[in-house]
Design a binder for these strands. Sequence first.
DNA 1: TTGTACGCGTTATCAG
DNA 2: CTGATAACGCGTACAA
Lengths: 348, 348
Amino acid sequence: MKKPVTIHDIAVMANVSPATVSRVLSNSDYPVSQELQDKIRQIAEEVNYIPNMLGKQLKKNESTTIGVIIPSIVNPFYSFVIFGIEEIARQNDHTVIICNSLNDPKLEEEYIRTIMEKQIKGLIISSISEDRTLLRNCINMGLNVVAIDQVLEEENVSQIKFDYRKGGYIGTKHLLEQGHTHIVYLTSKLDRPSRKSIYQGYVDAMEEAGLEPILEESNAGGLYTSVYDFDIGKRLARKILKSQSHPTAIFACNDMMAFGVINELSIQEISVPQDISVMGFDGIDFGLMIHPPLTTVKQPDYEMGKMACKLLFDKIKGDDIPSYDVVLQPSLIKRHSVKQYELTPGLS
Amino acid sequence: MKKPVTIHDIAVMANVSPATVSRVLSNSDYPVSQELQDKIRQIAEEVNYIPNMLGKQLKKNESTTIGVIIPSIVNPFYSFVIFGIEEIARQNDHTVIICNSLNDPKLEEEYIRTIMEKQIKGLIISSISEDRTLLRNCINMGLNVVAIDQVLEEENVSQIKFDYRKGGYIGTKHLLEQGHTHIVYLTSKLDRPSRKSIYQGYVDAMEEAGLEPILEESNAGGLYTSVYDFDIGKRLARKILKSQSHPTAIFACNDMMAFGVINELSIQEISVPQDISVMGFDGIDFGLMIHPPLTTVKQPDYEMGKMACKLLFDKIKGDDIPSYDVVLQPSLIKRHSVKQYELTPGLS
DNA sequence: TTGTACGCGTTATCAG
DNA sequence: CTGATAACGCGTACAA
């Protein structure tokens, strides 16, 4: 295991100064004679020179990696977000470090600290923490931050927002347009702004139609596996079936829960959508693999990641560009888990 | 955006030398009087000192990040692998950079180079490339490598293997034991050792039972999305139904394909498992969310990631420990996509 | 127990 | 156009 070769080594081999080698090998625009350029490049090639980023970054105080903090990568939604992020990062010759906060503010803080220590200049975060003092500090020290998924109202952080309320609204609206009037909304704990917004959209659409919103909320808090939401869906579905309310449609706050609902209904031999219609929220690919394929509200995950990363590089490069937010719009994916009733003439 | 404070700054504030500050703040075992320790720590706290890892690493030639190269994070299997990796990495105060090779040897090479430039000492890789010269070089220069998923027969790389053949064998065996004799094996292109091995296990079990193996192979090559495999499953299912072969069971080379098969069968109103049984391979969580819940062969993804990362740290720390491989065993997850025929007395 | 001085690999400044 | 030299922030012989 020999020592790696440095520009100094190459310098002595080529009988030039390390400065000249640096200028050539780092593609500086500083003028160097073609003759020396060729010579140096050839030697570098021969000895398999690999530049040391640490030295470079220490000197230039720049970084070629960005940090991403999300609750958990074991969630198709975030997988796609990261996929988008990584694509843009690669185009900008940056690499991505992934941090699963597991919905734990303590872990989140630990990761932010690590990111600062590593002199990373850019962070994309879905923050779960209430306490913003650390992040505030880091921003003041030059960290560029883009928030996704969860809003993060802080000066100088850009946000990729998503119109959750509208998502809840158009999902409900679709059910109404198909003739449903007895629609219950299923959700895991309404402890995050995003979840509240979806619910709000549902409420708005219902009230607009002069109908009574019916909420079924799970009080269980914050795990992060997909099976977990699935189970919540099953449990709430059972609860609804036992109750006296007989909805014609169920709107679940995410696709996993919707899968759970459909699963439970099919076990109890209630057919979807003939007996009860089901609407999801997220638009992950698996929705089209189940039976019936899930009608759902699409939250653009991959695009969200790409946008977030582009925005981040805008911030990192142009220090004079003002922070701006982007609000992505939901769209409806019509598949086959929602039944159309006889159109009621009164509805549009 | 003020300059970050360094140990030198703290040194002047405390009227001591930078060396003393370094010794205290880096928790060196070098003796420093309690008095000074307290003083220095307090000042560091007050001024919100954040150590610069770059300087530290440049000096000590150590790294606190490991690299992971996998085909695509948008694949539940790899998501879980990474989840396991990150957990162990965190326990060892390391951070993880994710590289999606997208099954492109060119990209893979690019990432390996980047990892070397960043002076990273540990790499976990599911390599797609045929050409090992670069990796060979890196290993000689001190890179520690653990291979997962795809075998990588190189001196000094440890491997987390998985007994694919056995997986194919026990999956088939289960179908045989349930009384099936007409079993067809569905697979995407047999261009990787892992896929060949599963198929081999299937063939072994069939021949052992004196039955004819039937192979249905997709010739389409290398995309990386889940929907892709799903579609292959659907297409191959259609092909089988059109053909004169009338299998009682279908064994798919991964769960996504199995989902596709089940989906296509259910669309054509062929009921699973009453008319045709389906066996998957992977054991991802979604298998239990579909109808019927998928019987499948489990490949331990999360555990694979954890093992790989532990092995990697063994290599990084103990430079005298010999490389060793770990072979993980498959297990059968019995759910409800396989029907039991009347037991044939002749079979065990 | 503390301080001095140097070097890790690189780039930027300045002088030639 | 090229070279010497001084940083970047930190750890560590060696000296005191």
